[in-house]
Simulated scan of single mutants.
Amino acid sequence: MEPASRERLKSGTTVAPVTPSPVVLPPKTARMEAVEDIVYGSTAGVVGKYIEYPFDTVKVRLQAQPDHLPLRYTGPLDCFRQSIRADGFLGLYRGISAPLVGAALETSSLFFWERIGREAVYASGLAPREAQLPLSALWLSGAFSGACTSLVLTPIELVKCKIQVPETEAGGVVKAPLKPIPVIKDIWRHQGLRGFWHGQLGTLIREAGGCAAWFGSKETTTALLRQWNERAVASDADELARMREEPLPLWQQAVAGASAGMSYNFLFFPADTVKSRMQTTPIGGTEQNRTFAAETRALWRQAGIKGFYRGCGITVLRSAPSSAFIFIVFDGLKKYFPMQ
């Protein structure tokens, strides 16, 4: 102990404890924000894809049943049974390599463009930077994000859908499972570069509308849960102030993320069904050049409104845990591992 400190103790003077100054991190640059969106969004997307992929395979197979043949599957459970009987459980993960890349690109792109959309709202002067954006602006930035992401996503989903749905030859014999590289070569040979965006209109409608619902529902549910939490401690000013600084409890974050996934998948499911049918037509076949409108009319004639919702239940069901994990992983990484 220093001599001066010993003298103060002898004289009875109280020594105030030394409080270390808090470490103040510099504000993130736009470049680091973008890097976080890409790296953490990719990680969250891969986690979500492993959870949802078997259900997505079943969904695509239900959607892709041709309109000139009897239905091959009576429902999701029957599709699960037939698929596992034919290929085993791992067959439900057929073609996951391309979707994993797609999930990483899709999720990182969604978070990246959503942040760009929010920045555009601030730059336009519609909301001051120090204020939180209204929910309407968050829904709008979500739609902008989905529209931009659809351009990245359509080629990846085209390859994924063709791999997920087994092709049959005359006599009902199933061809050998397709691989990504042969599918890509086939598309290029028959349709050129333009062919990779077959089904783009369906992806655009699904992503623009669905992502408005994805981000918007998550933020809306978060705001409602936060209001509910604050009402419970309204009489305690200190606890109320602390709660406003803290993120929601983990289970409430999961509820908000689950509501986002369910809204995304349910509201624009018919557009996804038409897109899947367009993207699973045989390459070089007579139906491969059907437009979005023509495919919609063909499905309506075959099955009516029910045909547009084949596989909807299982899709909404699997989207709840998948979307919850995506938001929890992304928000958790941004909070605990900030990049500077």
Rank of each mutant, 00 (worst) to 15 (best):
H68Y: 11
L69T: 06
R72H: 11
Y73K: 02
T74M: 09
T74H: 14
P76W: 13
P76V: 06
L77F: 11
L77V: 13
D78S: 12
D78P: 10
C79F: 07
F80E: 12
S83R: 01
S83I: 00
I84P: 04
R85W: 10
R85N: 14
R85G: 11
D87F: 09
G88S: 00
F89D: 02
L90R: 14
G91W: 04
G91S: 04
G91Y: 02
L92D: 04
Y93Q: 03
Y93G: 01
R94W: 08
R94S: 12
G95K: 01
G95E: 03
G95M: 01
I96D: 11
S97D: 14
S97L: 12
A98R: 12
P99D: 03
P99C: 03
L100N: 07
L100S: 06
V101R: 09
A103Q: 02
A103T: 01
A104P: 10
A104D: 01
A104Y: 04
E106P: 05
T107H: 15
T107E: 15
S108P: 05
S109K: 07
S109W: 06
L110W: 03
F111N: 06
F111V: 07
F112Y: 13
W113A: 15
E114A: 06
R115H: 08
R115F: 04
I116F: 15
I116P: 09
I116H: 15
G117D: 06
G117C: 08
R118P: 09
E119K: 15
A120K: 12
A120Q: 13
A120D: 09
V121C: 06
Y122K: 08
A123E: 13
G125P: 10
L126N: 09
L126C: 08
P128F: 02
P128M: 05
R129N: 09
R129D: 06
R129A: 13
R129C: 09
A131V: 08
A131N: 08
L133M: 03
P134A: 06
P134Y: 02
L135W: 08
L135K: 07
S136F: 08
S136T: 11
S136L: 10
S136K: 08
L138R: 14
W139T: 06
S141G: 12
S141C: 14
G142V: 03
G142C: 03
A143M: 13
F144L: 15
S145R: 07
G146I: 10
G146F: 09
A147S: 13
A147T: 13
C148F: 15
C148V: 15
S150E: 08
L153E: 15
T154F: 11
P155L: 01
L158S: 14
V159G: 01
V159T: 00
K160Q: 13
K160C: 04
C161V: 11
K162F: 04
K162G: 05
K162Y: 05
Q164G: 03
Q164W: 00
V165M: 01
V165I: 05
V165S: 03
P166C: 02
E167W: 07
T168G: 00
A170T: 02
A170N: 01
G171S: 00
G171W: 00
G172H: 00
G172Q: 00
G172T: 00
V173R: 07
V173T: 08
V173E: 08
V174H: 12
V174K: 14
K175D: 01
K175Y: 05
